[in-house]
Amino acid sequence: MTSMRYALTVIFSLMLALVLQLIPVSADWLPWKPNFLLLMVIGWVIFKPSQWGIGFAASVGLLADLVFRSPLGLHVFLFVFIGAAPYLLSGWLIYFNFIHRCFFVFILIIFSELLRNFMYSVWGVPVDYRDVPLGAISSAVIWPLMDKFLVNVHNNRR
């Protein structure tokens, strides 16, 4: 895979995740909605931390803030904080198998939701911490698809 094609794959995957995140769902299903964009960022950082690091996570976070109309900096903060974990642990992550990665992603999404709820509670928004694991479970469930996609992309690139 050429560098140009690789870059286009990254951009396309992020756009797709963004659109999936925007698809309207009813209020009952909203807590179950996977965090597609954060999953995609975690995925790219896990598989290529040297290329897609903290700056990449911050840029996608800024895009998310603008698209989701959230307070400017909220997603930058979340994505940088969560993206930093796979970046800093990249030395260990090469020994992680598929199951380990699923569990790792689940934990990261839990942290991300806790952090988001904490930020909102600081601003006085009522938050329900019972919803936190729901999004993490659904994110972990769809992670295998992303994992397979990212493994394929990086195998083709080698």
Binding site: Q21, P24, L30, V125
Partner: peptide, 11 residues
């Protein structure tokens, strides 16, 4: 007609 909904449950 509604053409977009905020994806965040807080906003």
């Amino acid at each position: 007609e509604v053409i977009g909904v905020s994806p965040s449950s807080k906003s």
